[in-house]
Amino acid sequence: MKPAPFEYHAPTSVDEAVRLLGMLEDAKVLAGGQSLVPLLNFRLARPAHVVDINGIPALDRIYERDGGVAVQALVRQSDAQRSELLQKLCPLVPEALKHVAHQVIRNRGTVVGSIAHADPAAELPAVILALQGSVRALGPGGTRDIPAESFFMGVLESALAPDELAVEVWFPAFTGPHGLREESRRHGDYAMAGVVRAGDRLALFGVAPTPVTADPNEPTRDLQPSADLEATPGFRKHLITAMTRELFAA
């Protein structure tokens, strides 16, 4: 299990990274690598170019912006988990991070990378969707903010263009009732199903090609989860109903 050959690029500024992404055919951005490198090892991903953004300075800040908190592309999940600013203004984010893989993975994995990777079974995409946050993308034409509602397009597919770099994500401040529940066969695995609450808003993960919002009173309406070795569609729906009830009873 070794990655297929690729050309390695290590830009030292976001502008250089965007220039490379615009110039190179079939390039993949490498941040924490905790999702991408397994895909490379399995050769499920075989990009011709890997653009490693870890050498870009001053891209690891967590700061207050527009009534919320922005988390830049090189903020490690373990640092976000410990961030006092996030704990104060967006406590759902550090709470959700406890459920993301394991401490050793979080030491390297990034918040932005996990969202840009758009894994439908991952926690953070559902969190940003529940909170109605956004992703700031930098491309050749400048920056744009993509609302979470229109960011997730399909399995591992986001609204980012091939020549755009997700430079930060933004979570609006929210200290109302919130929480995350998930069920997995083993601790730290991807969840069979999960639910995120932010006030009256509910987001589900692991049960559709993207994270989805749902009505807390009828969370499984129109839901058609897939089957795999771990869970049937019916069991997934049962989990969603039970966990939603738990989350909104609290």
Binding site: G33, Q34, F42, V104
Partner: peptide, 24 residues
């Protein structure tokens, strides 16, 4: 692929998976 933890090393003092890191 990052599941078993056997390859854990310290990178600048913090444990990370060495199978999920390019040597470069």
């Amino acid at each position: 692929h990052g599941v078993c933890g056997c390859c854990t090393v310290l990178l600048d003092g913090k444990p990370v998976r060495s199978c999920l890191l390019l040597a470069v």
